[in-house]
């Protein structure tokens, strides 16, 4: 006798993960190489500052908003911060997730308890809803938003929601909900190289480039 939930769970943990991982890694490498190999012309202007140092600095410093701007786009800023922090706390500090990294890379780090994980998850989901709301109502964001943006928001939210449901057995069969949770992550992984989720990788490059461009001039970045 077969259990659909158990079979789905095993498929999600087995072949589906392999497929998702292949597309995820392969796709990211394709897109990163497409950026890197393209290259850029050597800048002939005598540097005033240190482009490389400022490039690396900007990778981090750009995480802090410019003074005075938060009040003009509070949902985008706060929602953005809370979502990213919540998502990564839930993703990186939940013990079962760490176990995955331990298995894959042999590394481990301390995990956070349920209170922290679930608060982070809840906050991230609320932030996500706020971001969706702002995309639907705010004129600037509405004009910029494409199907891709909603897809990315929904795909980012599903692992949080399904994870919460699975851990807390809110509804549905336990195995089924874990399977759905894993599948939702795999959907996120598969979509990653094709959507704006790529920013999670390329932001490092774009911040670096911005920093080098400004850094050469001795200007702020």
């Amino acid at each position: 006798m077969n259990s659909p939930a158990f079979d789905l769970l095993m498929w999600a943990r087995g072949p589906a993960f392999d497929i998702a991982l292949t597309i995820f890694i392969g796709g990211i490498i394709i897109r990163v190489l497409e950026i890197v190999i393209l290259g850029r012309k050597k800048d002939m202007a005598a540097p005033k500052g240190n482009p490389v140092a400022q490039g690396f600095k900007t990778i981090f410093s750009r995480s802090i908003p410019r003074e005075g701007l938060v009040k003009f786009a509070p949902i985008t800023y706060l929602g953005g911060y809370i979502f990213h922090l919540g998502f990564f706390v839930a993703f990186l500090f939940f013990a079962p997730h760490i176990a995955l990294f331990t298995d894959a890379f042999g590394i481990k780090w301390p995990d956070a308890g349920r209170v922290i994980i679930e608060s982070a998850t809840a906050l991230a989901v609320i932030a996500l809803l706020a971001l969706i709301y702002s995309r639907m109502t705010d004129p600037v964001r509405k004009a910029l938003t494409t199907f891709d943006d909603y897809l990315v928001l929904i795909l980012s939210g599903l692992p949080l929601i399904t994870g919460y449901v699975a851990v807390n057995k809110l509804f549905g069969d336990g195995q089924m909900m874990i399977a759905i949770h894993i599948l939702s992550v795999e959907a996120l992984m598969i979509a990653f190289p094709f959507t704006k989720l790529m920013h999670a990788v390329t932001f490092v490059m774009s911040r670096y480039y911005n920093g080098t461009i400004q850094g050469r001039k001795g200007a702020e970045s």
Partner: peptide, 30 residues
């Protein structure tokens, strides 16, 4: 193996993806 750890030989898939991605990415970039 913890439940959260993939059940298959995902390392092989990952390595294949690195090779395949590198080939396709380089081709596309060129």
């Amino acid at each position: 193996k913890p439940l959260s750890v993939p059940a298959g030989d995902y390392r092989d898939a990952g390595l294949a993806a690195v090779a395949g991605g590198a080939a396709l990415g380089a081709a596309s970039a060129l």
